[in-house]
């Protein structure tokens, strides 16, 4: 039986991880689990630590050195997150070579590969999955990042046939929906709203999703209400801040304070780097023009 299915004992920890409740994954009491589920639970726990930026701890975790492909894959991810990208890439490629059938390896190695723009390799590895929903959602994301909405849509529709109930499929469908737009914005909104309002899945991840759907639907006041409330609760959540900046710009409000906050929390956020890049681009482009008569 699939340990992540509705009846499995890993369901709660699994949905907690995918709804972004990393701390509750870390706090999850794994001692009661049956032996075959201990490893997946540990992997989820380590991934949560990495997601929270505690990669030193996950690297230091003794079992990570053990000769287990799952844990090695976690290690690759930890290396990647810690900025040791070369080592991460090498490990990921090795794992992809040797254990392409392992679910954890598929997902984590592909994550590392994609993070370093080896999208083709990542997709090749992921395509070997056998009913691994996480792999599906990663494939969807890679397609979306490549702006191949059509392929992402196909992938989601295929997955819906066998994994309709899964949180992962619902969320992946919403990702695609937010790309496609039109009526799909509203559907995506419903998914995120549901996640955001249910106590077991409410986390910044879901609130951001809900707010983003509202922004795309043009419902700025609602989006603002959601983000403001969430920001008070999670003042350092990067995506909350980034999207609040976007929202404030749209609403014609000041964003300096939020931008400096984002600068503090994650200076490498694509919003900041992007703006920086565009700012320089502006200057070079503007330099090409000048008045005939200087004043």
């Amino acid at each position: 039986m699939d340990p992540f299915s509705a009846e499995g004992e890993l369901l709660n920890i699994h949905s907690a991880f995918h709804s972004g409740q990393y701390q509750s994954v870390i706090d999850f009491d794994a001692s009661a689990l049956s032996p075959e589920n201990k490893l997946p639970a540990q992997v989820l726990r380590l991934r949560s630590q990495i997601a929270l930026g505690q990669f030193d701890e996950s690297l230091a975790e003794p079992s990570i050195e053990e000769d287990s492909p799952d844990l090695s894959a976690v290690r690759a991810l930890a290396l990647q997150s810690a900025g040791k990208t070369d080592a991460a890439l090498q490990l990921a490629q090795e794992l992809a070579e040797n254990y392409p059938e392992n679910n954890t390896v598929q997902v984590l190695a592909a994550t590392v590969l994609q993070a370093q723009d080896h999208s083709e390799e990542a997709l090749a590895l992921l395509s070997k999955h056998q009913g691994n929903l996480e792999a599906v959602s990663l494939i969807v994301q890679i397609h979306l990042q490549q702006n191949r909405t059509d392929l992402a849509l196909k992938e989601v529709q295929a997955a819906k046939r066998w994994g309709q109930d899964s949180l992962l499929v619902n969320v992946a469908e919403s990702w695609v929906g937010l790309r496609v737009g039109g009526e799909k914005y509203q559907s995506a909104f419903y998914v995120y709203e549901e996640l955001a309002s249910a106590p077991s899945t409410s986390a910044p991840l879901a609130i951001v999703g809900q707010a983003i759907a509202e922004v795309h639907l043009g419902r700025l006041p609602e989006a603002e209400a959601a983000l403001t409330a969430a920001l008070e609760k999670y003042p350092t959540d990067v995506e909350l801040i980034a999207n609040s900046i976007v929202l404030n710009v749209l609403a014609g409000k000041q964003t300096e304070e939020l931008e400096s906050r984002l600068q503090q929390v994650q200076p490498s956020h694509s919003l900041l780097t992007d703006i920086q890049e565009k700012s320089e681009f502006f200057d070079t482009a503007a330099a090409k023009f000048s008045a005939k008569v200087s004043t």
């Binding site: 972004g20 991934r47 990647q80 984590l108 993070a115 994301q141 990042q145 795309h216 995506e239 999207n243």
Partner: peptide, 15 residues
């Protein structure tokens, strides 16, 4: 554009 957090460990999806 908005930044939709997706898979942990990867940059957010830009919409």
């Amino acid at each position: 554009k908005t930044y939709l957090p997706a898979t942990a460990g990867l940059p957010p999806l830009v919409n």
